[in-house]
Amino acid sequence: MLDDRARMEAAKKEKVEQILAEFQLQEEDLKKVMRRMQKEMDRGLRLETHEEASVKMLPTYVRSTPEGSEVGDFLSLDLGGTNFRVMLVKVGEGEEGQWSVKTKHQMYSIPEDAMTGTAEMLFDYISECISDFLDKHQMKHKKLPLGFTFSFPVRHEDIDKGILLNWTKGFKASGAEGNNVVGLLRDAIKRRGDFEMDVVAMVNDTVATMISCYYEDHQCEVGMIVGTGCNACYMEEMQNVELVEGDEGRMCVNTEWGAFGDSGELDEFLLEYDRLVDESSANPGQQLYEKLIGGKYMGELVRLVLLRLVDENLLFHGEASEQLRTRGAFETRFVSQVESDTGDRKQIYNILSTLGLRPSTTDCDIVRRACESVSTRAAHMCSAGLAGVINRMRESRSEDVMRITVGVDGSVYKLHPSFKERFHASVRRLTPSCEITFIESEEGSGRGAALVSAVACKKACMLGQ
């Protein structure tokens, strides 16, 4: 009897593995994704193909990295998701002549009506938060230079001027797309009239992360975010950046690689679950690469896999709870928690219980395998993109072996128990001629924006502006 049951459990697990095998990517698959990513990057950089390229390769006008001589107080704003952060950054000489960066910050959550109302409502709310922060720190009387981390696709015309191309991540505030974001912020500050600010720089969160990590390690020339969304930036040779005049030196390019796949480059790798996630998203047909990796989508992918296993009578005796059938019910943090389970399955059992399920031991094991399959594919897909960037940098610099540091931020990278190990191992397999160091950014977005502002202020002083 026991043997029969054991055989049935083994057969069930084997069927589960057959279904989950769809998520496995072979090294040849990853090399294919990497080569296609490089081709799209090239198209994004070139003037004649930029418009139709899915990977936009947006110039950021960040050319210099901090040298350690900029000092002063800077205000930093960070808008990239449902939370908005205001930070005071003091850049100065530390002990023994070292450079020191001290920060104080406060988080504000953005109400739904500000995210989806008008641009005026959104930026009025942001300036209200700045006003509140300055009151708390008794700094209303000071006109501070301000660095703005704005983590949406922007076409820069200068370091302090950028046109919002399109909202992502659930934002829909009308009247912002096609307009200068810094102008919208300046107008809102003017409307309030109770404080003055000098907006000197606007950067993407990947750029802010790279600059913040450069402060720790001067070989950091790539910034990457794996959180709600997924994106990367890197220092490109100016001669390859056709959208900006000049051939000397390097400029940081914001790849906006989340949109890779929007022209069909990933079609052969998309599964039924991916198509369902895409169809029910706020932007169907867009940001397809990001939807395979980002935390906004990972939990939902797992939920759809679990429903398939229920329908195949391989999980929960073929019956799903009402909660499990509800879109968004299986949160991405559950994926991390399930994979963090120590082996007694308590954590998995508790999560499934909150979803109205009474799982068996085998159910718990199957749910864990589903989570591992989805998150491992995410790590491997992400590795193909980064390997594409790094191999490109090595080739354009004609280096036999390139040493490089990548600064990384984002909740999936930082909080998932195995993502970074799987990701690092896969990147290294795909970049055999590179020695890569990964560092995690601390308060990256805010500190990085302030350091970019410090560079901009120093330049302005040198130019006598």
Rank of each mutant, 00 (worst) to 15 (best):
A6F: 11
A10H: 09
A11D: 10
K13R: 09
K13M: 15
V16F: 08
I19G: 12
I19Q: 07
A21V: 12
Q26E: 07
L30M: 09
K31W: 12
V33W: 00
K39G: 12
R46A: 13
H50F: 06
S54W: 06
S54I: 10
P59V: 05
S64M: 15
E70Y: 07
E70Q: 09
D78I: 05
L79R: 03
T82Q: 01
N83A: 03
F84W: 04
F84N: 00
V86A: 03
L88P: 03
K90D: 10
G92C: 06
E95N: 07
Q98I: 09
V101M: 10
S109P: 00
M115H: 05
M115N: 01
A119K: 01
M121P: 03
F123C: 03
D124V: 02
I126F: 06
C129H: 06
I130C: 01
D132I: 04
F133Q: 01
D135T: 08
G147S: 03
P153I: 01
K161L: 04
L165E: 03
K169R: 04
A173I: 00
A176D: 15
N179Q: 15
V181E: 02
L184A: 06
D187K: 06
A188N: 00
G193Y: 08
V203L: 03
T206I: 01
T209P: 00
M210T: 00
Y215N: 06
G223A: 14
C230F: 00
N231L: 07
M238F: 06
V241H: 10
D247I: 06
D247V: 10
T255R: 01
T255M: 01
W257M: 14
A259V: 01
A259L: 03
F260K: 09
G261T: 07
G264S: 11
G264R: 11
G264T: 15
F269A: 12
Y273M: 05
D274S: 04
V277P: 03
V277M: 01
V277I: 08
D278S: 11
Q286M: 14
Q287V: 15
Y289I: 07
G294Y: 01
K296R: 12
K296H: 13
K296D: 12
M298K: 05
L304P: 03
L309M: 05
E312Y: 14
N313H: 03
N313L: 14
A320C: 11
A320I: 15
E322L: 14
L324P: 05
R333F: 10
Q347I: 14
L355K: 05
T361D: 05
T362P: 11
D363L: 06
D363C: 09
D363R: 04
I366F: 09
V367L: 13
S375A: 08
S383G: 13
S396Y: 10
R397P: 08
S398Q: 07
S398H: 09
E399A: 10
H416I: 06
T431N: 07
T431W: 02
C434L: 10
E435F: 10
E440D: 13
G446H: 00
A450S: 01
A450R: 00
V452Q: 15
A460N: 15
M462G: 14
M462A: 12
L463D: 15
